[in-house]
Simulated assay, not measured.
Amino acid sequence: MKEKINKTNVARLLDKAKIAYQLVPYEVDENDLSAIHVAEQLGEDIEQVFKTLVLHGDKSGYFVCVIPGDHEVDLKKAAKVSSNKKCEMIPMKELLPLTGYIRGGCSPVGMKKHFPTYIHCTAPQFDKIYVSAGQRGLQIQISPTDLIKETQATVADLIAVSEEE
């Protein structure tokens, strides 16, 4: 018998939008909230486990970037796609009051209010990707096209290219 997973607000919103998804629990390590740890726990390719970052632009205000878990957001690229001259990650203390989510449990779906959302251009290459279900220890497996539709996201190149690549 499968253990019942309590539905998160994210799951309820996806149900309401009639979007197929799967809730996937994982073991939380309070000392390692990285997407790399999540991918290892899920036994999934890190390129398919996306993290949700909230940024603040000098012109647009807040916006959201959803990127593969082992990459860093390129602030110049993020600023450009969001029509800002510059942008920065929001301070951690602003995350919960702004989005309703805590670090390690921030989902692009169901924030307190809708912010412009940008998803990295590799997402549509996959049948399924993982994003936070809105709490630590729970991911949502979802089709990238459904996630893009639900969050009204723009697909863009958002990640910093490391020197080795």
Rank of each mutant, 00 (worst) to 15 (best):
Q135R: 15
K76Y: 08
K77T: 03
I142V: 11
S132V: 06
V109I: 14
L138N: 02
I148V: 14
K149A: 13
I102N: 11
T154W: 06
P116N: 11
R103F: 14
G110W: 03
I148G: 14
C121T: 11
E88V: 09
N84M: 04
R136Q: 14
M92F: 15
V109Y: 02
T145E: 13
P97T: 02
I90A: 04
Y101I: 02
P108M: 02
T145S: 05
I102S: 13
R136S: 06
V131N: 04
K149N: 11
S143V: 10
S143N: 12
P108I: 05
H114R: 14
V73D: 01
I148M: 06
I142S: 00
L96Y: 13
F126P: 00
V131P: 10
Q152I: 09
K86H: 15
S82R: 04
M92Q: 15
T145N: 12
N84Q: 06
V109R: 01
P124V: 07
K76S: 12
G100S: 03
S143K: 10
K76R: 14
V155N: 10
Q139W: 01
L75E: 01
T99Q: 02
G134M: 04
V131R: 00
A78M: 08
T117S: 04
M89Y: 12
S107M: 04
A156H: 03
M92G: 12
G104M: 09
A156Q: 06
H120G: 01
F115L: 12
G104R: 03
K86W: 08
V81H: 04
R103W: 13
R136P: 05
Q125C: 12
I129F: 00
V109S: 05
E88L: 07
E72V: 05
E150V: 15
K112S: 11
A79H: 00
Q135N: 11
G134L: 05
K113A: 14
P97W: 08
K113N: 13
H120K: 05
N84K: 07
H114P: 00
E72G: 01
V81M: 04
V131I: 13
L147K: 11
K128Y: 14
S82E: 00
P124D: 00
R136M: 09
I140V: 15
P116I: 09
D146E: 13
Q125M: 10
I140H: 05
A133I: 07
Q135P: 07
Q141H: 01
L95W: 09
F126R: 02
G105N: 01
L98Q: 03
D157M: 07
E150T: 15
T99A: 07
Q141M: 08
K113P: 14
C106V: 07
M92T: 15
I129W: 02
T122I: 12
T151C: 07
E88C: 05
G137M: 03
A156D: 02
S107T: 06
A78N: 01
P124H: 13
F115N: 06
G134R: 07
E150W: 08
Y101P: 09
I102F: 08
D127N: 09
L98Y: 13
A78R: 11
A153Y: 03
V131G: 06
V81G: 02
Q135K: 15
R103Q: 14
D146R: 08
G100A: 05
S107C: 10
Y130M: 11
E88T: 05
A78P: 01
G69W: 02
G137A: 11
I129D: 05
P108A: 04
L95S: 08
E150S: 14
G100K: 01
I119Q: 09
S132Y: 07
Y130A: 04
I140S: 05
